[in-house]
């Protein structure tokens, strides 16, 4: 595992030195500031509005970060031939994939925590209460971000970055759909759609912005189970990505 750890650090350093991360982070923070500046009906509603749309902004940010950080990693490594010396000798393919994934996952998590901090500051600036579940809610979005990251890696082994963006975004949208909504996409094949929906992820379990905005209490066990589900699904996507990568000839 030392090889994976070292390669993760290498990836982390590399991503921090790229402008993509800082650009996306700036966009998310500006969007949060924009949400906070929208005039609302009254004080109690404004807090709810900021929380609701702020968490939604962070969630979209996780998608942007996953795509911005990872969509180009493997294609670029292959194109610039930096991949060859790595997978020829010091790393196995699974070590390469995990190293790149963990490095990007840490950077993504750090960026999302910064956006969470930004949201807290905005609430405090407007003299609004900061709910205790805001940080756990962000942690759930981070887990969702890791799932999206693993999806981006999966697509990156057979799709170019411009194709990876719509594919991952489509999966992101579909994973938010309820069974009825999803079945409605192809009403003539309800059975197939039901089975597909079951295999596709239920990313809506990571969104607790409404309960938080409306002040519901959320039991800690829910966070644990949702995180476990997210990690298992990410592992599944990574294993699929690895199966594709292992079958690839590195010309």
């Amino acid at each position: 595992m030392k090889a994976v750890y070292t390669f993760s650090l290498m990836t982390l350093h590399m991503l921090f030195r790229r402008r993509t991360l800082w650009g996306i982070l700036l966009v998310i923070l500006l969007a949060l500031a924009g949400i906070a500046s929208v005039p609302s009906f009254d004080v109690s509603n404004q807090g709810r509005f900021i929380l609701d749309f702020g968490l939604f902004g962070i969630e979209l940010g996780s998608l942007l970060l996953a795509l911005g950080l990872a969509a180009n990693l493997y294609p670029r490594d292959k194109e610039t031939r930096t991949l060859m010396p790595l997978v020829a000798v010091p790393l196995s393919r699974w070590q390469y994939l995990l190293g790149r994934f963990f490095g990007a996952a840490i950077v993504q998590a750090a960026a999302l925590l910064v956006t969470c901090l930004g949201l807290m500051l905005i609430l405090l600036f407007h003299k609004l209460p900061v709910p205790g579940d805001l940080l756990p809610a962000t942690l759930l979005i981070i887990v969702e971000g890791w799932f999206l990251l693993s999806t981006v890696f999966f697509f990156s082994f057979f799709a170019s970055p411009p194709l990876n963006w719509p594919l991952t975004t489509m999966l992101f949208i579909v994973s938010q759909m309820s069974v009825s909504e999803f079945t409605g996409l192809l009403p003539s094949a309800p059975g197939l759609m039901r089975v597909l929906r079951m295999i596709l992820p239920h990313a809506d379990v990571f969104h607790i912005k409404d309960p938080i905005a409306h002040g519901f209490s959320i039991e800690p066990v829910y966070f644990l189970i949702a995180v476990f589900y997210g990690l298992c699904y990410s592992a599944f996507m990574l294993s699929l990505a690895l199966a594709v990568f292992r079958g690839r000839d590195l010309k």
Partner: peptide, 21 residues
């Protein structure tokens, strides 16, 4: 349900990892 799905996907992940290896 979440726990059940999580375990299924974890087992599938291990199976795919082993078979592709």
């Amino acid at each position: 349900k979440l726990l059940r799905d999580a375990v299924i996907f974890l087992l599938l992940a291990v199976a795919v990892f082993v078979v592709s290896g």
